[in-house]
Simulated assay, not measured.
Amino acid sequence: MTRKASFPPVIDARTRVLVLGSLPGERSLAERRYYAHPQNQFWRLVGGAIGADLAALPYDQRLAALLARGVGLWDVVASARRTGSGDAAIAEATANDLPRLVDWLPDLRAVAFNGGKAAAIGRPLLAGRPIALLALPSSSPLHTIGLAAKQPAWMALAEHLAD
């Protein structure tokens, strides 16, 4: 199994909601872009929560739109061994320093975990902090419930972005 590493965080001082995945999949690692697999529903789900058609934008504009609306991205796993893209195959995981990042974000209101693996690793690292911890259904195409079933949970992000 090859050791794989996450990307740098996409954040700035305006970040109010931090969305954390587990570890980028094969397509994302190859393209060096968050949620690069065309069947991953992330851009549609988060776009629905912020009221923007992110999937229609070039990647750099997607990231800029997220930041402008107070949404940051990162992963709970800094590096791990994994064959393929599935979270179930993650082994020997080393977590990112989530507490340090959260402490650096002055306006952070919520951390949202994209999928069960992200929540299982990340939630204990942030327990007891005065922020909301949200477990979201995975945007991965491997999580087979449809977009319409996932969207209501993802809409909860909007509550933490409002002024």
Rank of each mutant, 00 (worst) to 15 (best):
P141L: 06
I131T: 10
A153V: 07
A120V: 03
S140T: 04
S140V: 01
P130I: 10
Q151M: 15
K117W: 07
L126A: 11
A118Q: 09
A156V: 02
P141M: 08
K117T: 11
A112C: 07
L134F: 03
I145D: 08
A156F: 00
S139H: 03
P141T: 06
P141V: 07
P124N: 11
T144H: 15
P152W: 08
P137I: 12
I121C: 11
A127R: 01
P141F: 06
W154I: 02
P152N: 13
A149T: 08
W154Q: 07
I131N: 11
I121F: 14
P152T: 11
L134T: 01
E159L: 13
A119K: 07
L142H: 14
P130L: 13
I145T: 10
G115E: 03
I131F: 12
A149N: 08
I121M: 13
A119M: 05
F113T: 02
I121L: 15
A148H: 07
K150L: 09
P130G: 13
I145G: 06
M155I: 05
L136F: 06
A132K: 03
Q151K: 15
H143L: 09
A119T: 04
A158K: 15
K150T: 07
Q151L: 15
L157C: 05
Q151I: 14
L133Y: 07
S140N: 05
I145C: 09
A132C: 03
L136D: 05
L126H: 05
A156I: 01
A120Q: 13
L125R: 00
L142T: 06
R123H: 14
A127G: 08
A127Y: 00
L125S: 00
P137F: 12
F113M: 07
R129C: 00
W154T: 03
H160A: 04
R129T: 00
K150W: 05
R123D: 08
P137Y: 13
R129A: 00
A120C: 07
K117E: 10
A149S: 13
P130E: 10
S140R: 02
G146M: 02
A132T: 01
G116M: 07
P137E: 13
L134S: 02
A149Q: 15
I121R: 14
R123L: 10
A127V: 02
P152V: 08
I131L: 15
F113G: 07
H160T: 01
L157W: 00
A158G: 12
Q151N: 13
P141H: 13
P152F: 10
A156P: 01
S139P: 03
